[in-house]
Structure formats: structure tokens, C-alpha cells
């Protein structure tokens, strides 16, 4: 059952005293330290904080790519760490879209094949796939590059394709760890605008990390981490 809050938007992710410890020689590093946080559908949220503050760790825990040392992650009310490895892979495939900092695209597939890749794994039929791919190519402004291979794209274009792939199958939410870190200002701006556009048009939920101030400015909610703890959590109307 989805959890519902007052303004009628459902909570899709909720963490409960989420901790992740790393052993560094003899000392223990609390990469994530008792994090309690909820993400509601339709959010466009940035996780920010200095390097080593635990942004990547937090996103990995929420995405089921890492297991917490203690605490729990609920997605759609379901404790994802209760799932078996195979179920978790399937759960990710059907519910979460991922955008990484680099190495997002499959080099042997064309842009359109990359976009429809997740849908194909899910078993979506061809007609639906093609329609959706065409629609997204249009939205990210890369219709003319449909048949290009990833090596022929700029960093910004690659990231836009990655975003398109992540949301092609209309996942519950999209996790993006520093999607703009490798991009210059202009490309970062374009990517963010694309993400915002998709957030508005398709009501996709975005949770991304960044330490780029210009990117932060576009976010509607800023969660600030320091030493694995949330020190600030602010919502803006933009």
C-alpha cells in the first residue's frame, strides 16, 4: 500500500534510521548516519554536500545497489532489503531508473536502441517501444541522432540519452548520481532543463546528487548532507 500524506501525493521512498558504515583500517566511517527521509512522487530533489559527505552512498542505498548496515529503505512501502538478489534486480528494473555520472550507455547499441533497452528487458512490445522512443527523442531534442552510436555523442548528449532511457519505462522515480559532473556549464544547463521538462510533463520523480551550485538552483528541494547526516532539508517554489 502506498503511504499517503496530506496533500494527496504519495510517499514513494522512505528511509528509517538508515546507516552505512565503512571500515577504513581501524577507524569506522559513517557514510550514512541515521538518515530519515521521505520522497513524494513528482519531486525534483537534489542531494548536496561536500565531497565524502555520503551522497553517493545514500543514493545507492535507496536504489538497492548497496545494503545498509542498519536501518531500512521502503520503496512503495516495501522494504527492499527483504528482497532476494534476483527479486531486487527485477524490482530495480521495473521501478527505478538510473542515471550515472558516466558509462551510462551501451556502446554497441544506437541511441534509440539504448533508450528502448530497459523497455525491451521488461518485455514491452515493439510498437509501444518505438512510440515511446520516438516521443522521448523528441523531448530530449535528439531526433536527428537516433541512429548514432554513443561514441559519436557529446557528454551532454550522452547524459540526455541516459535520462531518456531511465524514464522510458515510466519508473517510480529516477536516481541520478552527479549526472552533470562531467559536463560543462552549458551542457549541464541543457540537461537540467531537459530533466525539469520531463519532471513537469511526465510527472517523473527525480532524486539526484550534485555539488554544482547552478544545478542546485534548479532543484525544488535541497537535502544537504554532512558527514552522512542530513543537516538541512529545504523546499523551494520556483
Amino acid at each position: 500500500m502506498n503511504e499517503v500524506i496530506n496533500n494527496n501525493r504519495s510517499i514513494i521512498v522512505r528511509t528509517e534510521n538508515l546507516c552505512k558504515l565503512f571500515l577504513n583500517g581501524k577507524s569506522e566511517i559513517k557514510a550514512t548516519d541515521h538518515v530519515n527521509l521521505s520522497i513524494t512522487s513528482g519531486e525534483f530533489t537534489a542531494v548536496v554536500g561536500p565531497s565524502g559527505s555520503g551522497k553517493t552512498t545514500l543514493l545507492n542505498l535507496i536504489g538497492g545497489l548497496a545494503t545498509p548496515s542498519s536501518g531500512r529503505v521502503f520503496v512503495k512501502g516495501k522494504d527492499i532489503n527483504q528482497l532476494k538478489e534476483k527479486e531486487l534486480v527485477k524490482f530495480r528494473l521495473h521501478n527505478i531508473g538510473f542515471v550515472f555520472q558516466f558509462l551510462n550507455l551501451i556502446p554497441v547499441l544506437t541511441v534509440e536502441e539504448n533508450i528502448s533497452f530497459i523497455m525491451e528487458l521488461q518485455g514491452t512490445n515493439k510498437e509501444q517501444r518505438n512510440r515511446r522512443t520516438a516521443e522521448l527523442l523528441e523531448l530530449i531534442g535528439m531526433k536527428d541522432r537516433a541512429r548514432s552510436r554513443p561514441y559519436a555523442l557529446s557528454g551532454g548528449q550522452k547524459q540526455r540519452v541516459a535520462v531518456a532511457r531511465a524514464l522510458a519505462s515510466k519508473p517510480l522515480f529516477i536516481l541520478a548520481d552527479e549526472p552533470t559532473a562531467n559536463l560543462d556549464t552549458e551542457a549541464a544547463e541543457t540537461l537540467l532543463n531537459t530533466m525539469l521538462l520531463l519532471n513537469e510533463k511526465e510527472k517523473v520523480t527525480f532524486l539526484f546528487s550534485t555539488h554544482d551550485p547552478r544545478v542546485m538552483n534548479k532543484a525544488r528541494r535541497l537535502i544537504t548532507l554532512e558527514d552522512g547526516r542530513i543537516t538541512k532539508d529545504e523546499t523551494y517554489v520556483r
Binding site: 534486480v89 527485477k90 530495480r92 538510473f98 550515472f100 558509462l103 530497459i118
Partner: peptide, 11 residues
């Protein structure tokens, strides 16, 4: 590449 494929849900 394989690690990315596994992350995005390729079984």
C-alpha cells in the same frame, strides 16, 4: 559496462 547493466536491472 557489465556493472552498469546489472545496476539498471539486467538479470
Amino acid at each position: 559496462e557489465f556493472s552498469m547493466l546489472k545496476k539498471v536491472g539486467m538479470g
